[in-house]
Amino acid sequence: MQAPQTPPISAAIRAEAHRREVAARRRSGRVALVFIAPALALVALFLLLPVLFNLGLSFTRWQRFSGLDEFGGLMNYQRLFMVPYLSEVVINTAMWVIGAITLPLAFGLGLALLLRGVPGEGLFKALFFLPRVLAPAAVGTIWFYVYAPDGVINTLAGAAVGQEIDYGWLFESHTITPAIIMTFVWQTLGINMVLLLLGMAAIPRDPIEAAHVDGASSWQIFRHIIWPLLLPTVFVVTILNVIAGFTAFDLIWVMGNGYPAQRSLSLAVFMYYETFSNSRWAFGAAIAVMLSALVILVSWALTVMQSRVEARIR
């Protein structure tokens, strides 16, 4: 914004200019609010208000037909610790979080390194990415039959060992969670790989070439050049994976359909079950609050780590 050039300006003119500018800025601000208003209204009404409402509900005694107007204090939060199968819920959720952080990243990274510069890289990328655009509900439905006692996995394994196998992967307590996590990995590995490839593409070639010339091994190049420069991407991918792991629902809901203790397969499923199958609304609201606290805490911690790492690179 340029100030008026003519040297002698009276105070009145200057004041007038200032007034106009303030008015213009105000007008601009008002117009801006009009542009923001619809988005803000929808988000406030359907997302922000519900969050507060949920928090409030978690302190009531609401279950089944009544209790909406009765204050229950921390009752619902204490109730969680009295659930007899809480340890199963926690263990399964922990498996999900750890599995979702490490496996898609590890496989995705391996694949990204493998595919870099391979003939037909584009086609490979597209095919490995394909499961990602399928709905989790559709993927879960297909994999439900893949893991069935007479399904693909058992048929292939049976052919390999030469005898019939009819193991129920999704009906046994020690295989159901790993099995569903593997389906999750199958679906998300592609996007992890693509994101990492994007990150790698941004890494300058010169230091890598120079290291090659110096006779550095592939591992040394990866460890000392690629990995540090890739770390920011790794963090982004990890945060996405953590949230996906904590909140995984569709796959478990569809694939755990025949498993009697389905509700204990993760915190998200447990919340859904207590709320909509057992009609313990206030309790469900409290579980949602705790789940949110966990997710926010972990992603915040990762963000802090990320900015530290980025600061160190610079």
Binding site: R64, T275, F276, S277, S279
Partner: peptide, 14 residues
């Protein structure tokens, strides 16, 4: 069925 029950129950609670 469970969602149906939830619907009726929350209607009555409201």
């Amino acid at each position: 069925t469970d969602r149906y029950q939830a619907y009726v129950m929350s209607s009555i609670a409201g």
